[in-house]
Structures are given as C-alpha cells and as structure tokens.
Design a protein around this nucleic acid. Structure first.
Lengths: 337, 337
DNA sequence: AAACCGGCTGACAGCGCTGTCAGTTTGTTT
DNA sequence: AAACAAACTGACAGCGCTGTCAGCCGGTTT
C-alpha cells in the first residue's frame, strides 16, 4: 500500500483537497458531517500529512529549537522534557542544539538554523540567555525566541524566570532560624544569572535578621564540583569556621560535603550544608542535601507556550512568567553544635 | 533583503537552477570554474537552501530520530552529544523523542514520526533496543534504524554494543586480586541488556579463579538508587557479610554506599563498592566510586554513522560495532580488612 | 571522417501541501 | 418571499527544491 496523500483522502471522502486540509489542521468553518466524513477517510487510509510538504507550503517548520551550552545533564534533560511535552501537544517537534557560546561561528550557525527554515523559533537556556550578541542578532533577524532565566530582562523579549532571590532568602532565613550565625556562602559562576539573585537573597536575609555579614565567609565559586571543594577548603580553614555553608548550586555543595568528609567534620552536627537546584546528586550523597528545587520542566513548558503564542501572532501582553522555587530540607542541615 | 532562493543564485551565477543544486549538494560532474562561480553567488546572496523544499523534493527529511525511554539523564545527554556531533557533520539534524515503552500507542507514535517524513531513520537506546514489538514494526515498515546495546542481536539489524561481560569480568577479577572472596553482586533491571552480560562476567570471574559462588550474595536490583539501597540492606544484614559489593550500575552502587554510611561501615576498609557506567554521581559521592566507563558518546556517534550508511543505500557489510569499556578505580575499593 | 564516449549542463515536471479568493449553500431578517 | 449575512467549500497557483532525461561539447576510437 503506497503512502496516501491528501488527494487520496479528498477523493475517498468526496470533498476537495482543501477541505481535508481544514480538517487536518482543525480549522473552523467545516460542517460537522463533512468533518466526520473526512475523518473516516483519513482513518481508512491511515493518512499522515507530509511534514515537508506542509512546511514548504505554509512556510514554517513546526519545529522549535532548543539552544543550550553545557549546563548540567539533569538540567538539560528537565528542560527538554518540559519543552517536549508542550511541543507535542501543539504538534511541534523539538530540535536540540547544544553550542559553545565562545565559538566564533555560533551566530552564523544559529541564524542558519532559522534561515534554512529548520526551526520556527528558539528557546535559550542559561548561559545563552544572557549572551547579548546572540540575543541582539535574533532580535535583528526578527526570530521569535524566549529566554529561560535571563539575568537582565529590561527589554521586550519574552522570558521565563524563577524567584531565585526569594528562595535564597528563605533558605538563609531557615539556617538562621536553626541557630546558625556564621553562614558561609559560595557565589556561583559570574556568567550565570543565579549569581546576583541568589547572593542578594543571602544578603537580604542577614539584613532582615539584623545580623552582620562577614565578608570572609563569602567566596567565589564557578559552579563545578571541584570549585565547590576548593571554596570549602578555604572556608573550613578559617580560624573561626562557619557552622553552615550555603552553596549557589548542588554541584558545589557536593564539593563542600566531600571536603568536610575528608576533614572528618560531622554533618550536620558540626556543619550544615545547603545547595540550590535539586540535581539528582542531591539525594544520592551522604548526608542527603538540603536544597532548592526549581520547577525546570515547568519553566521550559511555559517558555514553549510563550513561544507558540508569538508564532501564532498573538502578541503576548506580558511576555514573561515568574515561577516559584521550593526548599527541600534533607539531612545535610540541622541545628549547630 | 528578501530571502534568496536557488533561482536568484542561478540567475546571478548565470547557470541553471540545477547546477546550483549540484554545487550545494556537492554532487560530482561540475567543472571547477562553474563551481567557483556558483559558490561566489551563494556567498554574495548569503543563500541558504530551504530545508522543507529539499525535503519535499528529495523525499527525505535530513533528520534522524533518537528514541529513548527513561535511562539516566547523563546517559541520554551523552548519547545525544555523540549522535549530534556526527549528525551535524553530515548535515543532519537530530530529533529527540523520549517515549514510554509501555504506552499502548508507542508503535503508532513512532511509525507516524517516520510516515510523516519527520525523520529518515531512528536510533534506539536501551531499553527500547530490546522491545521486540517495536523492532519488528520497524523492520516491517522498512524503517532504517540502529540499536544501541541490544541484548539480542541475532537478526540482521545493525547495532552498536559494548563488551559489558568482559568489563564485569575484569572488575570482578580486580576485586578478587585485591583479596576479596565474598563479593556481593546486585543484578540490574531484568529489562536491561546489562543484566545478562554483566552478571555473566561476574560469574565467569569466579569460575576462572576457582572460587565458589555463594548465591546468597547475588541479589536482584532494579537499577534505581532506592533499589540499590534495598539490596544493600539485604546483603549487609547477612550473618557473614560480603567484603565487597559490585552493583550493576552506579545509581545502585550509590545506594549501597549510603546504606553503608548509615550503618557506620567504613569504606573501603570494611566494604569495597564498585559500580558500572561512570555517571556523574560516581565522583561526587564519598568515597568516590570505582566503576566502569562506557564510551557512550562514541557509541552513539557510531550508531549514527551506521544509520547514515544505510540511508545512503550502501548496504553495510557488517552492520555492527563493538566498543570497549574502561575500569576506573577510585576510593570506594581497596584491600579488605 | 564518422562514430562514439564521458564529462558537463539545463529544461521541466513534479514533491504534497496551504493561502487566496471566489463561489455556493444555509440561516436570518425584513 | 426577497434580501442579506454568515457559514461553508473548492479551484488553483505556487512554496523552493530535486530527479529525470535529453542535449551539448571536446576528445577518442574505428
């Protein structure tokens, strides 16, 4: 049995090609009886519209592109899952496109993706969300896109964001509430949005609780496990060492925990550790890590939703969304002493 | 500047549309001077061929599909990266398609992907590689595909495989060499290929070393962290408990380590633990995990290569590849006692 | 000199859809 | 019952490429 085309369906249903097209695309203004007749023909022939033909005729690919550069595997997977779910429901596919943000041909590469008509729109994840040259190029080329967790969002580009600052504030308050006064903080990679926001939350919590902030307890990390470990070495070598360390992400927090193990420091009795992100490692280490969970999949889903709205030409009134994080208290935190 | 089409390029270069097509597709039989002329025109107009137009005309999508069901995030990412790398070089894109293998519409869904012409071929990862209904359906529909790490590979379908048995054998021998006699083994999920192979390697090592195999030390796990922990509870509660535990994957090994921590068992002094896969967690836990690294990205790249060969119609003489694993010794293993 | 061959090039007919627009039917109003 | 709007349907012209096939050209071969 050869592959059925729209003509075959039209002939069988006794209608025009165009009417079949209307039914397939769920367009309005088709009489219910006609619709049924066509649907029956579609089912009988097991008709599947050719993706390339409709792309060519409609001048869109029904594919969205997901751009990312090297965040953690679990982050990427969560984003993919969330995005895919929403894409599918809308009949869209997702093309993944990892890329190095320092590659000099990244702009050309991404623009080619669009100009070749491979994708109708793009989702940018950190740190690409904050790559101004890229963002500007997309704006100039009038490419529809949505950014996940951008640091800056002053312009009119749609984005999806979390309340990182609030979450970091809450976490810090919780540590203070447990009785901690000397709370170390490991700042994240300067290129990532998390940095400013999360650190600001930490600072705000100290202010709110009328506690003095000891700058020697604040160190700069780079988001990796190894950098977390190095920061921990620094913090745990202090004469008066902190009773808690709050790392800007889980990988660094895992580094802190390893370093504490190696120094024979009991957790949480002698040291509480908190992370951010709830990566898989968080509950696979000992002690399991108190952390903040971002609704990553949901954010990605939301981003796709905003993007699809753009594509439909419905100019989104407020092209942005803020989503909430949740603190997960596990074994790595407790009362000091 | 409107988007240039192949006609624009042809006009500018003073050749026919078809000749431009030849240059773009790197077809032979174009005089060098003509080729240069056309290339100049392409560059001048910044021409990018329309993906949908060529798909429609050539009746292929230049897209490969990657099918997977829920292996770990890091595994999926590695597969994606390896596959993408090779795809790109060949001018192909990769469509990711996670799917639940117990969904009753999975066959229809996957076949639709092909029948709609969204993809030209498929890569199956475990456990989908071993889903006979799916494999059979693809064979029946004459869909080109390659399987990663299938358990069975008696038929003519191309596949890419690792020498799991050999690696498990080597690891077990290494533990024996360190002085371990009572080595617990946690079998993986029955649906995953790893199971048979890895367990067989363990058994073979005992045989080879003339050691009796104590069946009470072999327990059935299900690949998850939690199941690893449950298995550890069982093994560590034995009157005469093992001095080493070899888990069929890292997640389960991580579960073993947590359980040992909770029981205050020192590692590796009182218990050596080995895993399989070298997932990110392996070096983020304490003690860091001795494990086996599979060349996942390379396998995926190889799979794409085999798939592209199929698509080109070059019937692959030996449509398969075996790739080697490597043992990584870290802190979690050592001499017993 | 005729016949031939291989490398090179172009004319043309689609690929299977969707957008446009005009035409036909149906339901509603006066 | 005529007039009109609204709902519905179809004819047709592409979308921008590739495959087929025929034709051309220069260099061999007979």
């Amino acid at each position: 049995m050869a592959k059925a085309t729209i003509d075959d369906v039209a002939a069988l249903a006794g209608v025009s090609m165009k009417t079949v097209s209307r039914v397939v695309n769920k367009e309005p203004n088709v009489r219910a009886s006609t619709r049924d007749k066509v649907q029956a023909a579609i089912d009988e022939l097991n008709y599947r519209p050719s993706q390339s033909a409709r792309s060519l005729a409609a001048n869109r690919s029904y594919v969205l592109g997901l751009l990312y550069d090297n965040p953690s595997a679990s982050y990427v997977i969560d984003v993919q899952d969330g995005a895919l779910e929403t894409c599918r429901r809308a009949g869209y596919d997702l093309l993944i496109h990892p890329c190095k943000r320092d590659a000099d041909d990244i702009l050309a590469e991404v623009l080619a993706l669009v100009r070749q008509g491979r994708v109708d729109g793009l989702i940018l994840t950190p740190p690409l969300s904050d790559m101004t040259t890229l963002v500007q190029a997309l704006v100039d080329a009038a490419v529809p896109f949505v950014r996940l967790s951008p640091t800056e969002h002053t312009d009119a580009c749609p984005y999806v964001q979390t309340n990182d600052q609030e979450a970091a504030y809450d976490m810090t308050c919780r540590l203070i509430e447990l009785g901690h006064q000397r709370i170390g903080f490991i700042i994240g990679h300067p290129d990532h949005r998390a940095v400013t926001q999360r650190y600001a939350g930490y600072v705000a919590a100290f202010k709110e609780n009328d506690l003095a902030l000891d700058k020697t307890l604040v160190v700069q990390g780079y988001n990796s496990f190894d950098s977390g470990r190095e920061c921990a070495e620094q913090l745990l070598s202090l004469a008066e060492r902190p009773s808690a360390i709050f790392a800007s992400n889980d990988d660094m927090a895992a580094g802190v925990i390893i370093e504490a193990h190696h120094r024979g420091i009991a957790m949480p009795a002698e040291l509480s550790v908190a992370g951010f992100d709830d990566t898989p490692v968080a509950h696979q280490i000992y002690p399991s890590l108190t952390t903040v969970r971002q609704p990553i999949a949901e954010m990605a889903a939301k981003a796709v939703e905003l993007l699809l709205k753009q594509l439909k030409g419905k100019s989104v009134q407020m092209p942005a969304a803020i989503m909430s994080c949740r603190i997960l208290e596990r074994e790595s935190t407790g009362k000091p002493g």
